[in-house]
Design a protein around this nucleic acid. Structure first.
Lengths: 197, 197, 197, 197
DNA sequence: GATGAATGAGTCTTCATTCAT
DNA sequence: AATGAATGAAGACTCATTCAT
């Protein structure tokens, strides 16, 4: 989906697959360094393939984008699923948010990927978006069910807060700041313990 | 400051002033729509003046930028000063943040202006930045002094949280969401009332 | 001639004369530094007058050019006339050529002025050209009359050789080289002493 | 070398070669007419190709320049080598200088190529420069060894004299003049026959 | 399928030149 | 007369995109 390659029912050529992989790696690097406006030629050059090859695999900039960051989002989802096990549910939420900051720090393109997944309506991101929402949702659900946090925020809301805070990333040491801000935010989500209990 | 025009002591030509104004309006529109990378030619075109005129008035992209958003930031500062009067200090903080959201909603370019004022180190924004920080700082100071909010956040931190949340703006109705998120954040800032009192 | 100012029979305003002078000085500096392609706005800026004023005084680039270098050429002419007195005529020729090199070294624009005066057919330079030719001609004449140099070169030829050698000017120490080359050239002009005498 | 094209081991596309050739021809014409500052767009236009194509083949103005004039300089070198055979060594020198004038006359851009090769320090011209110097040097060497000319001039000096004289080229019939001037110069180089011999 | 050449539209930027004040 | 604002025509350069090989 999104790639221009692969007529149904035909086994992909080995070099084709290899090129696709090289392109994805190159694109991640280039987009990380130069932002999402970076030149496609730079991507092809770094991948060591012709620009035509890039276009064959990813007919639009968006298609490339999507493919590049799909796996990153998958990691976030996995992380949310792990965090949902055991532990205090509010703490799990906080830990997961911290982990998100860590990933944004490592993979500079991550934010670029998250924003459309959370906010956009582009059908290309629909699936990614749905999976992410589900994972975050179940994380929140536990805390809500335990009466520990307010129940009027959606998973998107939480994601947006997290993403927004991360836009701060530039100064050295930004991670510390963002973690602090997120902690404040999580504190704001808490409900007082039920005095009846 | 920043404009290449106006040797001291000479009355500006009428059309010059008119053009400057047209350029500022056009620039606000264009930057709002296309982001800060938007083409300067597009600005000139929309202003209905020659590209040379744009360059005469604003020799660099940054100079134009700065001029466009200076007044907007001034309004935020004024708003903060007003909010500092009377009322409950935490409430004042919350109200000011709400007002910020309102301004971001009205002037789509506002965010573009705030980000460099808060994060950047460009000397052009140094003054703007300082004024903003002072205004927000005194707003927070009152709440801290009253023992109502935590004292370990800087004015920049608060601004960053606000700005970050606003990056969310795209979907219809985003303002409601952002206001909600900011309220959560302010709740997170609160300290429990001093039991000794 | 060449200037657009001065309707006949009207005394020039004092500031007009002052501006003209400032422009000439500025033009010399700017053309020296930036070559003959230098921007007229730079000239006006350095002169501290408006670009419009420059145009009023010198309606074309060439007119400015001509005015700037007129006096320089005059100096060369004067030099040639002095050199024609006394001394050995071949030596006088050589000395004058050396002096030319010195002037080219001092006034970087000099070459730019000489070339059109010697080669061009622009009527603006006709007079300059004539005066120069006359001066150099009489210098050569003496040596020819004394049977000391060949008689088949014109004053233009000599000037061209000198100018050509000077085009070399770039490297540090070029003057030494050019003087050497001119000495060789003068040696080539010599006739053997008349054995009959 | 200097071109941005041709990864090793791939046969160049036919139209690519054709375009390269068209560009070289166009560039020679345009630089001849308009000097080395001439517009690259004019070159592309005259070659009948897009400006992008020009940039692909020659990523910098200098690269184009170099490519255009490389072959011309090669011819001069070959000529010098031929002239070094047989004949009277002073006469060989003179003949070669005459040939240079002829080439300058034919290929108006030649001077533009020679100047940086002789005077410049641009690494692009280093090789060209070296080859030319060697060729001229061995031509002079023979005459010096035979005690026929002064030994205190470098090959560069000779080249500069030749180039300088040619800057004269404008008027009709300039070749005759330049040949005359060069003959005078060569005469100036001569030493008197050794009376001891 | 892969390659990279060709193309031209679009940007930025500088200036000569004209004209309103 | 002087000024400098306005204008737009170049020119350099970059890239997205298409296509010949």
């Amino acid at each position: 989906m999104g790639e221009g390659v692969q007529k149904a029912g035909r086994r992909p050529r080995a070099d084709s697959l290899r090129n696709r992989e090289k392109l994805l790696l190159a694109a991640r690097d280039v987009f990380s360094a130069g932002g999402p406006e970076a030149s496609l030629e730079a991507v092809a050059r770094r991948a060591g393939v012709g620009i035509g090859t890039l276009y064959r695999h990813f007919p639009t900039r968006e298609a490339l984008f999507q493919a590049v960051y799909l796996r990153d989002v998958d990691q976030l989802v996995a992380l949310a699923q792990q965090a949902a096990d055991g532990r205090d549910p509010v703490e799990a939420l906080r830990q997961w948010l911290h982990a998100c900051v860590g990933m944004v720090a490592t993979k500079k393109g991550m934010l670029t990927a998250l924003a459309p997944s959370v906010q956009g309506s582009d059908p290309l991101f629909a699936d990614t978006s749905r999976r992410l929402r589900a994972a975050v949702g179940s994380l929140m659900e536990r805390a809500v069910a335990a009466g520990r946090i307010r129940s009027d925020l959606t998973p998107e809301d939480l994601m947006r807060a997290m993403i927004g805070m991360c836009y701060t990333r530039e100064q050295p040491g930004w991670q510390t700041t963002v973690v602090l801000l997120l902690d404040v935010f999580v504190d704001g989500l808490r409900l007082p313990p039920d005095p009846a209990a």
